[in-house]
Amino acid sequence: MHELSVVQSLLETIESYAAEQKATTVTKVIVRNGPLSGIVPHLLRTTFDTFKEKTIAEDAELVIGETPLQIHCHDCKQEAQTMVLRFACPLCGSRNVDARGGDDLILERLEMDVDDDPY
């Protein structure tokens, strides 16, 4: 359950951006997850929703987008993308492939309410 460490890191990053902007609340957190990141989206969401309480992101919605795996096929010589974690060419079925990308979990965008007149 390393999603806990990931969420702690995510919340620290959110707090830091929110403080920089003098935000009153963070409303949306948009992340992009690769199929080889080792992060399970469902567990990420559950953990985030548990640990966001009493933080600036308490009311934030977590949006998890998925990035595809890039497959380079040595047999049909084509490049293809797949969302399925299956190391075979989606075009010709060959298993003689290299799989690239999709290793990272990226914080893409934050949406927050900023008070224009804090005084």
């Binding site: 902007q21 990272d104 965008r109």
Partner: peptide
């Protein structure tokens, strides 16, 4: 509403 493009590994 402020939208911040972060693009940072978590």
């Amino acid at each position: 509403l402020e939208i911040i493009e972060v693009e940072e590994k978590i």
